[in-house]
């Protein structure tokens, strides 16, 4: 993995008619990286992916890949593979012919096509299914055919649209392992689009969180999970107690609360996961309104002068009954410090 950008998007603006879907997006991706585009539907992640594939021409900006400007290069000449969410296998062709499709268009000799398709199907564990039609395969198998079909073309970048979302839990784990294996064995640069933070965290080297056609945060899974920089990202990765900071004070329902620490000037807010809230000691008071048991932990909803607070404790500890008055603390040392609170 070198540090020079392999794929870069510069000031990329994408639009459908008059509707701008992505605005002035800058991003560089290194060779061999596995990157996730994460965000809610409509955030522009799929649109961005389609523009990298060449299925959508940018309104403005530049896309370059492997040192060449590909902004105006048509989709069939980009060496970019795409595994569609619906797999998009050709229903009239056998599994073998689906995988051979691109190689035949390249007019490779028959023996080489045979070798590459056989190897491709073997690598996804579908050698036995070569003669079947796509409709005779399960969803998971169809997806692996789609993966093999893209990979035999030896693309420079492989794009995957929601690769895990149509699979059940067991297959999801299998496919995740499969994708990591393919990436490790071939070193292909991979970008996948997902709305599921779990998928992004478990699979990606780097996550690009998107919202409203712009990048909210780029970082490793650890960065995103532990150090979200905006209210949106914090909320998206499960920080349920989020407060704005104004004039060095925490903005709560009952008025500003002075913070003892001195804060960096760009502090816009703090966010705590439920398990970061200390129960049973601290400067604040609240009443337990609801409690729920989830196996290893108990989750509490507290009514407090600051507003509603969600807290979580180890299930081994004694349960707090609804109606109980509790003291609690929101330790700033544990909190995620937000730089944007838009």
């Amino acid at each position: 993995m070198s540090d020079a950008p392999f794929l870069s998007l510069e000031k990329l603006t994408l639009a459908y008619g008059d509707t701008v879907a992505v605005k002035d997006l800058d991003l560089s991706i290194r060779k061999g990286e596995l990157v996730a585009f994460l965000g809610p539907s409509g955030c522009g992640k799929t649109t961005t992916m389609r523009s990298i594939a060449g299925l959508l021409t940018p309104a403005s900006g530049r896309i370059s890949l492997d040192g060449a400007d590909i902004t105006r290069v048509s989709a069939n000449k980009r060496s970019v593979g795409l595994v569609f969410q619906s797999y998009a296998l050709f229903p009239h062709l056998s599994v073998f012919e689906n995988v051979a499709f691109g190689l035949r268009l390249k007019k490779l000799p028959a023996s080489e096509i045979e070798t590459r398709v056989t190897a491709g199907l073997k690598s996804v564990g579908l050698s036995k299914f070569a003669a079947r039609k796509p409709a005779e395969l399960s969803g998971g198998q169809q997806q692996r055919v789609a993966l093999a079909r893209s990979m035999v073309m030896e693309p420079k970048v492989l794009l995957l649209d929601e690769p895990l979302s149509n699979l059940d839990a067991r297959l999801r784990l299998e496919m995740r392992t499969e994708l990591q294996r393919v990436q490790k064995e071939t070193g292909v640069t991979m970008i996948f689009v997902t709305h599921d933070q779990g998928e992004a965290l478990s699979l990606a080297d780097r996550i690009v969180v998107m919202l409203n056609g712009a990048i909210e945060q780029i970082g490793t899974p650890e960065d995103i999970y532990n150090r979200p920089v905006s209210r949106f990202v914090a909320d998206f990765v499960g920080f349920e107690n989020i407060f704005a900071v104004e004039g060095g004070k925490l903005k709560a329902a009952n008025g500003p609360i002075a913070l003892s620490e001195s804060l960096p000037p760009d502090t816009a807010g703090f966010a705590w996961r439920p398990r970061m809230v200390t129960l049973g000691s601290g400067p604040f008071q609240g009443t337990v309104r609801g409690a729920s048991f989830s196996g290893s932990t108990r989750e509490y909803l507290l009514d407090t002068p600051l507003g509603a607070i969600k807290a979580e404790e180890d299930a081994g500890l004694a349960a707090h009954q609804p109606g109980t008055e509790l003291t609690f603390d929101l330790p700033v040392a544990k909190a995620a410090r937000l730089e944007r609170f838009g």
Binding site: A75, V80, A88, F101, R149
Partner: peptide
């Protein structure tokens, strides 16, 4: 989307 798939595999 099968048409887009064909295009990405090199077809016009």
């Amino acid at each position: 989307d099968i048409e887009e798939a064909a295009v990405l595999l090199g077809s016009s």
